[in-house]
Design a binder for these strands. Structure first.
Length: 492
RNA sequence: GGUCCCGUGGUAGAGUGGCUAUACAGAGCUCUGCAAAAGCUCGUACAUCGGUUCAAAUCCGGUCGGGACCUCCA
């Protein structure tokens, strides 16, 4: 099925035509590992995950997915600097080498990040690569040199800058994000910048070392410029190196549109002499909390660990974060996660019933696109997902179909077909288990009371039956009567 | 100052010129001894004021309110 996406370049939803037949390459702007990522950050990565899964499952493409990890920038340097209050105590004392401190800090938070996304159902096996910026310094220097050679970069005060004015003479600057060059606000940040650039709109390609900062050597025109790569150059260089240019889809959060993506694109065009870095640029909207922005600087964020400590099921967190459309803001609340959980469990129960029906302990389906006879359910859900990853509609289709599925009337092969369809849907959502329902172990004395109650009930000794039911409840279990038997479940 | 986005039922969240998603919560019903569970049914919502139209929540304009971005941010 053809997948359409909203493209920031065209400002419209367009069908994705892969550059290489049957294959989609995706580059996602990953985290800067100076801190624990919060669930707002996670939403953006979950969006990329849904995108790549839809490409695999609905589009039927092979996917080459790269997500970078930024391990060198102002913040990682500041937080790992000698005496920084942000240095994690878990890492023990800092050492005398700023590069070593930097590496220890970023490694620490990288591991935490990888752990968090794994818990959120983003699978490592789906990545072609997760490059660290510091492993690609060579290509960054190389690109910087190319930009200088092409006449779009200049050295000033030990740093290298991108000359936006020169670039604008030959290219469009502002393809992803409308840039009002005449109305650049003279902001505090610009005034505070101590580097010497020709124009406020110019951005740094290579940043000169200050004090004791970690650095790499870089010889430009015979002069060594100890320093480090600018933030934007990292993604330009790594995407070129790992995916080749152009590639199909570039993702990130909305805040990446400008300046990050605009500059990334400009660098690629200026240095690599290409027309496009990526055919599609897609951006995930922000997660809000209490109707406002969630961010590190406002200190109103939750981490994955926070949520787990509050007793939330991580699958419910994933489900609630992916259930809105990625281009709309989503308001995060704990009640919302709980409600999402109740919704999620309904499909889970269906899967359990289907497994029971087919006498299977577990089911492993095919993770490729539509099989021989697509059921109405698969068609409608996939169609919604193929239209700009319309998850709300996909879920609506799923739940609208739910009452139509008469479990009792299905034969084994039909039940298996449903399992296959749900398996496919779950290859995108990844929030359901395809193993039989495991009930909590029932203590023997509770089981005895239960069977005594069942007997009392069948003998119509109602008072006894009710008393025994109360006793079961006081043991923390609830007895659910069926036609021919009962189940015991722990009270949640 | 500039650029944009959004205001939908108790809540979340789609849709988009007429047939008014979906979920959670709530109400009623069915089934059961009663409950629980399950199933069914229901609410008749689209900030506000004008305009266009046979018809507007949907298009246009004004107003009010909220939010984001403009070189730190997913």
């Amino acid at each position: 099925m053809i997948v359409s996406l909203y493209n920031a370049l065209s400002k419209s939803v367009q069908p994705v035509k892969p550059l290489t037949e049957g294959e989609i390459s995706i580059y996602s702007c990953g985290p800067t590992v100076y801190n624990t990522a919060h669930i707002g950050n996670m939403r953006s990565f979950l969006f990329a995950d849904i995108l790549q899964r839809v490409m695999r499952v609905v589009g039927g493409y092979g996917v080459r997915w790269v997500m970078n990890i930024t391990d060198i920038d102002d913040k990682t340097i500041a937080d790992s600097a000698m005496g920084s209050s942000s240095w994690p105590k878990e890492l023990g004392a800092q050492v005398d080498d700023s590069m070593v401190n930097l590496r220890r800090l970023t490694e620490y938070y990288s591991e935490m990040f990888l752990n968090d996304i794994a818990r959120l159902g983003i699978e490592r096996k789906h990545f072609l690569a997760m490059p660290r910026a510091t492993d690609y310094i060579d290509e960054m220097r190389n690109l910087t040199q190319k930009i200088i050679d092409a006449g779009y970069g200049y050295v000033s005060g030990g740093s290298v800058y991108f000359n936006v004015a020169a670039y604008r003479k030959t290219h469009t600057y502002g393809r992803i994000f409308h840039v009002d060059m005449e109305n650049f606000r003279e902001g505090v940040r610009i005034d505070a910048d101590e580097y010497d650039r020709d124009s406020v709109s110019d951005f740094v390609l290579w940043k000169a070392r200050k004090g004791n900062e970690p650095f790499w050597d870089f010889t430009v025109a015979g002069e060594n410029l100890p320093g480090r790569p600018g933030w934007h150059i990292e993604c330009s260089a790594m995407s070129k190196q790992l995916l080749g240019l152009p590639f199909d889809v570039h993702t990130g959060g909305v805040d990446n549109r400008f300046p990050h993506h605009e500059d990334e694109l400009a660098q690629c065009c200026a240095g690599y002499h290409i027309v496009e870095q990526a055919t599609f640029w897609c951006h995930g909207e922000f997660l809000e909390v209490d109707g406002g922005k969630m961010s590190k600087s406002l200190n109103n964020f939750y981490t994955v660990t926070d949520l787990l400590e509050r007793g939330l099921d991580i699958r419910d967190v994933r489900f609630s974060l992916i259930s809105g459309h990625y281009r709309n803001k989503l308001n995060f609340t704990f009640d919302g996660v709980v409600a999402a959980g109740k919704t999620r469990i309904r499909i889970q129960q269906l899967i359990w019933q289907l497994l029971k029906k087919t006498n299977l302990k577990s089911y492993i389906g095919s993770d490729i696109s539509v099989l021989g006879e697509p059921l109405f359910l698969q068609q409608s859900v996939y169609t919604a997902l193929a239209e700009d990853l319309h998850m709300p509609r996909a879920l609506a289709e799923l739940f609208s179909a739910l009452p139509k599925i008469m479990i009792a009337e299905l034969d084994i092969s039909q039940a298996t077909q449903y399992l296959e369809v749900l398996w496919g849907v779950n290859c995108v959502l990844n929030v359901w288990e395809f193993t039989e329902q495991i009930f909590a172990e029932i203590p023997e004395h509770v089981a005895k009371i239960a069977s005594a109650r069942w007997l009392a009930k069948s003998e119509k000794r109602w008072a006894d039956a009710d008393a025994l039911r109360d006793e079961i409840a006081s043991n923390g279990f609830v007895m659910k009567d069926g036609k021919d038997g009962y189940t015991l479940e722990p009270v949640p």
